[in-house]
Design a binder for these strands. Structure first.
Lengths: 219, 219
DNA sequence: CCCGCCGTGGCAGCAAGTTGCCAACCTTTG
DNA sequence: CAAAGGTTGGCAACTTGCTGCCACGGCGGG
């Protein structure tokens, strides 16, 4: 049976903040976090709703792990934020796989974000030990398979300067021919960039890339 | 020169609500509204932030015009809301063109939404008569070129039932061959549907369609 | 200077998507 | 029943997108 204190479903960021903020403050040993973009968990604090949160220095004996999609590194804001977190002691890794947005606190409670379609986003907070353990082990597996931040960061250095313009052109619906001319690139090179972009977004079709780009607020 | 009472830039929905709600309440003759999705103006009232607003019956001598993209009719929630507004006396038209999100109140003040990329959405409120007149005339032109709600509504009846599944398949990055088989359609028909979908989204490329679909919360 | 490295762009071939056309089939209407 | 209208799916021609291959040119190290 489902005890009331083992699972709670929350709708909207406001309520999420009100009901889970104390969990973050009470964290003693570890916060692990998987996110597709920067903005899912940002609204946790109402007073920082409009900006990415400012990371605190990590106290000794405390571990923060952040697992992101490569896409966040396409966004200058995202890049800055991730680097900042890294400098403040958080471990940051990048995975090309699909990851559901998840937070694990002290291996005792997990928060998982639901879909965003049709209405406000929902979140499930789970205390049930079996679930927490299983989710944590899945997270660990994904974490091991992921690559360190700096590797990806170096790879994307050049792409990052072109990405905004490419995304804008793609988003405007114009075709490769036109876009390449606009950027003074050959069609070949333009498509190379698009391919890199799609790989960074973890997309296998342009439609999917469009969705992901919009999710990340890049268009 | 720009007088302070002729232009105000607002950041975020919260502030928009606080500073413009009285304008809606004070409207005497007309509210005209252009929107790409249902959710741009919904957050105007904090207490209805999580649901589309409930339309009020339109008093005699008062005109409400709403200009939407076809895409809102792909969403069951959107369809219901738009129909409701129509039943309550609002005029609703659909345009395939790109429209910037705009509200015109009593031909005396306009509110225009800015981009959403990188941070909270900004809104500009303009009282300057020249601007208001010019924007209103542009709106009128777009309005005249648009088609009545019920025409589009009929056209999209069948598409609406398939759209969610098609969008999901497209969003999952799988290719037409697979998707068609999944839906028990021929590739030809599947692509017909995709073409209709893209036209409803006003997209000329699949990337753009992905962006639009995400904007509308359809994926 | 020569060499290797790397990014670029042309080309070719293939994969994927787009569209018009038409025949087959269904339903509706007279 | 017959005619008309609409939907489907196969075919084909075409466009667009994807990628491996290779040649060219710049750049830094030996």
């Amino acid at each position: 049976m489902t005890a009331q204190n083992e699972l709670a479903v929350i709708r909207g960021h406001q309520e999420l903040y009100e009901r889970t903020w104390h969990l973050f403050q009470a964290a003693k040993t570890e916060i692990s976090c998987a996110a597709n973009d920067l903005y899912t968990w940002v609204h946790l604090r109402a007073d920082t709703a409009d900006r990415p949160p400012v990371p605190q220095d990590t106290p000794p004996g405390f571990m923060i792990r952040k697992l992101y999609r490569p896409g966040v590194l396409l966004d200058p804001v995202g890049t800055r934020h991730v680097r900042l977190a890294f400098q403040h002691g958080a471990q940051v890794r990048i995975t090309p796989d699909e990851i559901n947005e998840t937070i694990i606190i002290d291996r005792r409670v997990v928060i998982m974000a639901g879909g965003v379609a049709h209405g406000p986003r929902s979140f499930s907070v789970v205390w049930a030990p079996d679930v927490v353990t299983a989710v944590a082990s899945l997270f660990d597996a994904a974490w091991r398979a992921a690559t360190e931040l700096d590797v990806y960061d170096r790879e994307l250095t050049e792409l990052r300067v072109l990405a905004p313009r490419i995304l804008e052109l793609l988003g405007s619906g114009c075709k490769d021919e036109t876009a390449a001319r606009t950027l003074s690139l050959s069609v070949r090179t333009y498509r190379r960039r698009v391919a890199e972009l799609m790989s960074a977004l973890g997309a296998t079709s342009r439609f999917q890339a469009g969705v992901r780009a919009r999710e990340l607020g890049l268009v």
